[in-house]
Amino acid sequence: MLLGIAILITAGLAFLVVMPLLAAEGGSERALPIDVTPQADLKRRRAVIYENIQDLDFEHKAGKISGEDYQAMRQHYLSEAAQLMLASEESEAMNDRDAYIEREVAACRARSRPPQESYVCPKCGYENAVPVKFCGECGARIAGKK
């Protein structure tokens, strides 16, 4: 009796485990999404520097750091942040160029297809398979939901 229940539970769990494998490949679930995009990473790295600056400001206010050290270090952090900001802008510009081409291609495609079927991103032209607020590819807002 108990043995039967145990085997039943195991079989049930095994079924649940196998089920996703049997599902059809496709949709936005296809590949593993990137957790932190390169753009976001640059911003996070800036955020770390901002936190450092905030700490530095606070320690200066608390009188733990002399004015000279403080100015030099703050300058240093700012130039680190500036470099990251530049890198951000560069990669954005690259994205823009790519996005322009993709947008044209997408527009071409869109003309040859009924519009309700897909959720095309206005920025990068990626066709999201399901209704989404943000583009699955570049993260831009999908128009009309601002």
Binding site: L13, A23, E29
Partner: peptide
């Protein structure tokens, strides 16, 4: 993603068993 889902369920199954 679907194999990951299966592995995640195996992990939860491990917990259950």
């Amino acid at each position: 993603a679907r194999i990951l889902k299966s592995a995640e369920r195996a992990a939860l199954g491990f917990l259950g068993l």
